[in-house]
Simulated assay, not measured.
Amino acid sequence: MSDTPHGGFPRFTPAHPPADFGRLVEALRTIQDLAVSTDLPEEQLAAAADQAEKLAAAMAPYVVPEGASPAGRSLELPGRGSLLLMPWTIEKYGPDGVQSTGVFRRYHLGGNAAAHGGTLPLLFDDLFGLIQHGYGRPRSRTAFLHIDYRAVTPLDQQLRVSGHVTKVEGRKTFIEAVLTDLDGKVLAECNSLMVSLLPGQP
């Protein structure tokens, strides 16, 4: 059984993959963007599908357990090398808060050149995990996450998200964060409750 600070989570260590891993992740992100923004003729569509299937087949023999892949553990890469996470770059990390910058890409489109509203909770939730970790709190799960959408969140424009711990009560960590453009215009505000895990709790 794991110790209390990690509940039932295994301990994951940072990964330092070769540069080609970063190239692969960025290429796959671009493919995601193109997959939702192109209308390929039938011949090119078949060729693209063939290439995608060949790549999947080439990678499949190397599947490893959770925590062994560099995805999500590559701290130097945008989004820590995870295709799930927003490809943002951490600029500040510590007990007084976390700040990162990045863009919502075409893949994140909700409509009318704006980011899908459901992508913002993902951005904030990942940020809150980093914030509580930087604050020195034990491994936690999100109990609630409340977002106030203040303005349309644009695609392909550098934005900034920052947040910090506001209060700690036993196993509870309360966090607030804000998403702005680089001129300081508030696009969304969020607050959350993170609850630390009990020993062995998943």
Rank of each mutant, 00 (worst) to 15 (best):
81 G>W: 03
82 S>P: 09
82 S>T: 08
84 L>G: 04
86 M>C: 10
86 M>G: 09
87 P>G: 13
87 P>Y: 08
87 P>S: 12
88 W>K: 08
89 T>I: 14
90 I>Y: 13
92 K>I: 11
92 K>D: 12
93 Y>I: 04
93 Y>A: 04
93 Y>L: 03
94 G>V: 01
94 G>K: 05
94 G>C: 01
95 P>E: 00
95 P>M: 00
96 D>E: 09
97 G>A: 02
99 Q>N: 10
99 Q>V: 15
99 Q>R: 15
100 S>I: 06
101 T>M: 15
102 G>I: 15
102 G>N: 14
102 G>S: 13
102 G>Y: 14
103 V>H: 07
104 F>M: 14
106 R>Y: 11
108 H>I: 10
109 L>K: 07
110 G>Q: 05
111 G>Y: 05
112 N>K: 10
112 N>E: 13
114 A>Q: 10
114 A>T: 11
115 A>V: 03
117 G>P: 06
118 G>Y: 05
118 G>A: 03
119 T>Y: 08
119 T>V: 15
122 L>V: 15
123 L>Q: 10
123 L>S: 13
123 L>V: 12
124 F>K: 12
124 F>Q: 09
125 D>A: 10
125 D>N: 06
127 L>H: 11
127 L>K: 09
130 L>T: 07
130 L>A: 08
130 L>D: 11
130 L>I: 03
132 Q>E: 02
133 H>S: 05
133 H>Q: 05
134 G>T: 04
135 Y>G: 00
136 G>T: 02
136 G>P: 03
136 G>D: 02
137 R>V: 00
138 P>N: 02
139 R>C: 06
140 S>G: 07
141 R>I: 09
141 R>S: 05
142 T>W: 01
143 A>L: 07
143 A>C: 03
146 H>A: 15
147 I>M: 05
149 Y>E: 04
153 T>Y: 12
153 T>K: 10
153 T>E: 08
154 P>Q: 07
155 L>I: 15
155 L>T: 14
155 L>S: 13
156 D>P: 14
157 Q>R: 15
159 L>P: 12
160 R>S: 11
160 R>T: 13
161 V>G: 13
162 S>Y: 08
163 G>D: 01
163 G>C: 04
164 H>S: 05
164 H>R: 07
164 H>K: 08
165 V>E: 00
165 V>H: 01
166 T>C: 05
167 K>T: 07
168 V>N: 01
170 G>M: 07
171 R>M: 03
171 R>G: 01
171 R>E: 02
172 K>R: 09
172 K>L: 03
173 T>R: 00
173 T>I: 05
174 F>N: 03
174 F>L: 06
175 I>A: 01
178 V>E: 13
178 V>A: 13
180 T>H: 03
